[in-house]
Design a protein around this nucleic acid. Structure first.
Lengths: 107, 107
DNA sequence: AAGATTTATCGTAATATTGCGATATAACAA
DNA sequence: TTGTTATATCGCAATATTACGATAAATCTT
């Protein structure tokens, strides 16, 4: 296999899982943190910052982009990768809700 | 490859990633939600509930267990899987912090 | 135009994940 | 003890992920 049976689950569960999958790699966590901390937004010092190859970083960025977390202003050769605030807050809410909805009254 | 270079990243980043990996599958999300909603805690109607095979559910439970989210009271044949409240709240905090720490001042 | 710089994409190897059937293990019931 | 029920583990096949080098594409510099 290697493929999740998404059709068995409700949309919310699949969405949590899909976003979690993007966060499920320390490089992508680091990339998100790094991008957010740059005033300048002139990115891909990420290669130097993380020690990963440029191709690898580019791939990770595209995974992050897929869930709508990146807003890129392309300024010539230096792409400017920025976090999409609205989307970020939406995902924050998604996870907050997930963690809050659990009722623990058990054993 | 297929293996993340965890040595390149700080502990916090690896921890977020490790937990996210567990949440990165809709079956595990569903299992967590289901377990939390049961007053009774007599689990593994999970097989019937999710439509996945028993072996698969058992495997997912063991992944969830690995990050400390399950407290199992074994009562005879019916294992009782329960969510570990403290751990749950700790992970809630971990993700809340992750989402909050991002400063968005960019582009 | 020609070279330099930056990012994206392709192809590939190594490893991980997902899901399942078959079987093992453990505890209860009769 | 024997059978039943519930869960765990093993082995496997299909697919996904991770990382990288090589190369393409795009833009800037001169």
């Amino acid at each position: 296999m290697g493929i999740s049976k998404t059709e068995l689950f409700v949309e919310n569960q699949n969405e949590v899982a899909q976003v979690a999958k993007v966060l499920a790699n320390p490089a992508r966590v680091a990339i998100l943190q790094y991008i957010s901390k740059q005033d300048t937004c002139i990115c891909s010092d990420l290669v130097e910052e993380t020690g990963l190859a440029q191709a690898t970083i580019s791939q990770h960025l595209s995974e992050i982009k897929k869930i709508g977390l990146l807003k890129g202003n392309i300024q010539g050769t230096n792409r400017c990768y920025c976090i999409d605030t609205e989307r970020w807050e939406a995902l924050h809410g998604l996870f907050h809700e997930f963690f809050s909805r659990i009722q623990i009254q058990c054993c």
